[in-house]
Design a protein around this nucleic acid. Structure first.
Length: 472
RNA sequence: GGCGACGUGGUGAAGUGGUUCAACACGGAGGUCUGCAAAACCUCUAUUCACCGGUUCGAAUCCGGUCGUCGCCUCCA
């Protein structure tokens, strides 16, 4: 079985067959660094992360490129208001983005190219389009793509170009075009705006062309997978296809993957709606990063996802269930023969997990396979029906699957490093109190530990602790 | 107005013609274990899949209609 993915362009679910066998090239539309990304943005980044992690888990080589849009209207306006250069503004928010990404355990893309470092590539593409008659200049030095020259325009979004509404904003914004639906490849210079002097004249790049230029620079004229949120289908990705294929004459992307929106209060999470929630704000409010990651990835990527306190609470509880098992497996000691049938449990879990993810990344079904195994392992721990070696292997197996999910607690070399200040002393005191059967002292110390976020549980292997991933 | 997605229990959510088809998680009730807890385990928590009609031996699953929700139609992940 191989991974089958649903391509937005054709609507078909097809097996992934990389252009270069064994090597998958992926481009993801990344953040525009003019402010902090919200968790809706991160849903789409984490969906790409899950894809990349799964492909690597499956033994494929992956080259993952995620662009950084560091020049656009919002950045120019924001930098101007803050009295800094666009490069300074972009760097500030890029660092914030990377901090958020790290907190949410997003895999670091192999390349994070910045638009302003690829002006040459964009100019080259635009020149080619001009030479081929797919693009034209207007009086202000701008260059537009001529949609009428590209009959396939509208296929990705299933839009009929002749039906596109021409809004007032479009007409006002794009004055000078021969057709209101044409889109900007290059914007002529304006006072107060950054401008590059290039072979096609002075000015700055349009938004869409950067993704064509940067994907080609790192992945070639044709590559395997392009991801983004559904809101990028039109016009962004439609425009990318038109300008890329018109310039190279080759098919641009083999498989388009689009992630459905994250909703809050019933509406798409968007800055313009005002219903956004930011990663760092949530983390500072005490939300567990792992629970947030779980909440964002645990629903199929093409399914709309409503974010709420309740969804976060449920995610936190699920995470703690996993944590309790990990703590249980780590602490478990039983000198006995290995249980030979444990392998069957692990094999079943792996095959269920892989079959689910192979089916267009059905993560809900994959998690069901994991939790079925969790219950079985808990049962065997409770019955003391496996050996210490079995427990060690089961834990290693869980961590193997977690290479895809990224939701298990970190593997500390010395678990005590993870304890809050003073907790070690409280744990030692409690152990001593229990040895002396001083239950009131034992209970008091347990409460004190709980208050600093450490849950203590008594087992026949002695007292065992784990950090709580509580909300607030 | 055009195009598209979706509607499954208290909640989130798998399942897209029949062999457990109603997973899994959260929540709730009862029980076991425990010095007490916690965690864990066990039992229960949708004879039913928005509604109506149709196809079929058989439908949550296919077809038609109705209602509802959400998204896209040049800021957008």
């Amino acid at each position: 079985m191989t991974l089958r993915l649903r391509d937005t362009l054709t609507g078909a679910v097809r097996p992934l067959e990389p252009l270069e066998p064994g090597h998958v090239r992926i481009y993801s539309c990344g953040p525009t660094v003019y402010g902090p990304a919200h968790i809706g943005n991160f849903r789409s980044f984490l969906f790409a992360d899950l894809l990349v992690r799964y492909l690597r888990y499956r033994g494929l080589r992956v080259t993952w490129v995620m662009n950084i849009t560091d020049v656009d209207d919002k950045i120019i306006r924001g930098a101007s208001e803050a009295g800094v250069t666009i490069a300074e503004m972009a760097t500030t928010w890029l660092e914030r983005f990377q901090g958020d990404a790290t907190a949410l355990r997003m895999t670091q893309p192999d390349v994070l190219p910045r638009a302003t470092e690829h002006i040459d590539g964009m100019v080259g593409l635009i020149q080619t389009l001009l030479d081929a008659g797919h693009a034209y200049r207007t009086d202000d030095g701008s260059i537009f793509f001529r949609i009428a020259s590209w009959p396939a325009y509208g296929r990705l979004a299933r839009l009929d170009p002749s039906q596109l509404r021409t809004t007032e904003r479009v007409e006002a914004d794009e004055y000078g075009k021969t057709d209101a639906r044409d889109f900007a490849l290059w914007k002529g210079p304006k006072p107060g705006e950054p401008s590059w002097d290039t072979a096609i004249g002075a000015g700055r790049p349009g938004w869409h062309i950067e993704c064509s230029a940067m994907s080609m620079a790192y992945l070639g004229p044709s590559f395997d997978i392009h991801t983004g949120g559904v809101d990028l289908i039109f016009p962004h990705h439609e425009d990318e296809i038109a300008q890329s294929e018109a310039a190279t004459g080759e098919p641009f992307v083999r498989t388009w993957l689009h992630c459905a929106h994250l909703r809050l209060g019933g509406a798409k999470m968007a800055k313009s709606v005002g219903n956004i929630s930011r990663v760092m704000d949530l983390l500072e409010a005490g939300v567990s990063a792992r629970a947030l990651r779980y909440a964002l990835i645990s629903v199929h990527y093409r399914q709309g996802l409503e974010y709420s306190e309740a969804s976060l609470d449920a995610a936190t509880a699920a995470i703690e269930r996993l944590d309790a098992l990990v703590a249980g497996l780590e602490a478990y000691r039983e000198e006995r023969e290995d249980a030979v049938d444990l392998d069957a449990v692990l094999v079943a879990a792996r095959s269920g997990f892989e079959a689910a993810l192979d089916d267009d990344l059905n993560v809900s079904a994959a998690l069901a396979a994991v939790f079925a195994m969790v219950r079985e392992l808990n049962r065997r721990l409770a019955d003391r029906a496996i050996s210490t070696g079995n427990a060690t292997r089961a834990l290693a197996f869980l961590r193997d699957l977690d290479a895809v999910l990224g939701i298990l607690p970190d593997q500390a070399d010395n678990p005590s490093d993870d304890l809050p200040a003073g907790a070690r002393e409280l744990l030692d005191a409690r152990e001593a109190a229990r040895a002396g059967r001083d239950w009131s002292a034992s209970d008091r110390l347990r409460d004190e530990l709980l208050a600093i976020g450490v849950a203590v549980e008594d087992t026949r292997d002695g007292q065992r602790w784990r950090r709580l991933e509580a909300v607030r």
